[in-house]
């Protein structure tokens, strides 16, 4: 009897989640018809952040490994695809296929060094920063990618959108990043509810206990880093073809890494919706602030960073689990009963 009613409650919760998701997706699909160019660009930035947040969340939220150097993987994705395009005329989708193994290999090297030699916690985080910094300084001196002068992708006017070469108007880029975000969401959900997802969460909760329960922790942490890195590299490919210019100082900057983790931290680390919600909350509010300041004729460089800081502070103090978990309970979407 109680099992039946429990099942009904859980079914109700997942049905409500499904309806909510379908609504959100419908709104996002319709957005280009409603939104102006500015709003569309903001939405692209939001979805970009939701995508990278989800990719980062696999490592930290699922497997408990704190990376503060994810700019490395996005940067590698950007440079691999850009170089293939500029020097060899190879399109971004093939470029992405090349970028995934490169980023995953970089993640594997960092993971191997850390996990093999017991570098964990903050020390692991520092190692990830170090590798991103190596890349930043290294790429600044690689002549083949025009070093610090920056790599520029040829911009040509196209009569219609060229999806294969990612040349076109913001609407096309918007749909590409929307599709990527949805795909990442589905991937994360599948991973979290699979065998590997259980092992990741066990490692996150207590690595020694996980190992005692037979979990091959080294292997599953390596898989987490490689999937996370490979997924993040797509964000780099998108970045390269959307902005058409790459500077090591920018793409590998530690600020990029930090921006990636803000969404999940605000939304809720380890949750499926957290990174997406966090991206909307953070970027949405920051852009509203920008617009409001512009309306009042205020021009304060750095206001966005200050605003991010305030947001983080508020969330850490008031909602240490992020915005999503309490919101899910409020909406009756939480599956686990207290």
């Amino acid at each position: 009897m109680s099992a039946i009613s429990l099942a009904r409650v859980a079914g109700g919760a997942s049905r409500r989640i499904f309806v909510l998701l379908a609504l959100l997706l419908a709104v996002l699909l319709a957005a280009p018809w409603i939104a102006n160019d500015y709003l569309l660009t903001v939405l692209i930035v939001i979805l970009y952040s939701a995508f990278t947040g989800q990719a980062w969340n696999i490592m930290m939220g699922f497997a408990g490994q704190l990376s503060l150097g994810h700019a490395l993987y996005a940067g590698l994705g950007a440079y691999v695809s850009a170089v293939l395009f500029v020097d060899f005329g190879i399109g971004p989708w093939i470029g992405f296929l090349a970028a995934v193994p490169v980023a995953a290999a970089a993640g594997a090297i960092i993971g191997f060094l850390a996990f093999r030699f017991g570098v964990a916690g903050v020390y692991f985080a520092i190692l990830t920063i170090a590798f991103a910094e190596f890349a930043r300084i290294g790429f600044d001196h690689i002549a083949a990618v025009d070093a610090s002068a920056g790599l520029f992708l040829p911009v040509r006017q196209v009569a219609h959108n060229d999806l294969w070469h990612l040349r076109g108007d913001p609407t096309m880029f918007y749909y590409v990043i929307l599709a990527a975000t949805v795909a990442a969401f589905i991937l994360c959900r599948l991973l979290l509810e699979s065998r590997i997802g259980y092992f990741w969460r066990a490692i996150r909760e207590d690595e020694e206990a996980a190992r005692a329960a037979g979990v091959a922790t080294f292997r599953y942490k390596m898989v987490a880093v490689m999937i996370s890195a490979g997924l993040t590299s797509f964000a780099g490919v998108f970045y390269a073809f959307f902005y058409n210019n790459l500077f090591p100082e920018q793409v590998f900057n530690i600020g990029r890494s930090i921006e990636m983790i803000l969404g999940p931290v605000i939304g809720g680390i380890g949750t499926l919706f957290g990174p997406i919600l966090g991206a909307f909350v953070l970027t949405g509010l920051a852009e509203s602030l920008n617009a409001a300041m512009a309306a009042f004729g205020l021009d304060m460089p750095g206001a966005k960073q200050v605003f991010y800081g305030v947001c983080l502070l508020v969330v850490i103090v008031a909602l240490p689990q992020g915005v999503w978990p309490p919101l899910a309970r409020r909406l009756g979407l939480a599956k686990d009963k207290p």
Binding site: R201, A202, E205, D206, A209, A210, A212, D336
Partner: peptide, 8 residues
């Protein structure tokens, strides 16, 4: 004891 605290 070392259960995984946040897991059900």
């Amino acid at each position: 004891v070392r259960p995984f605290p946040a897991l059900s």
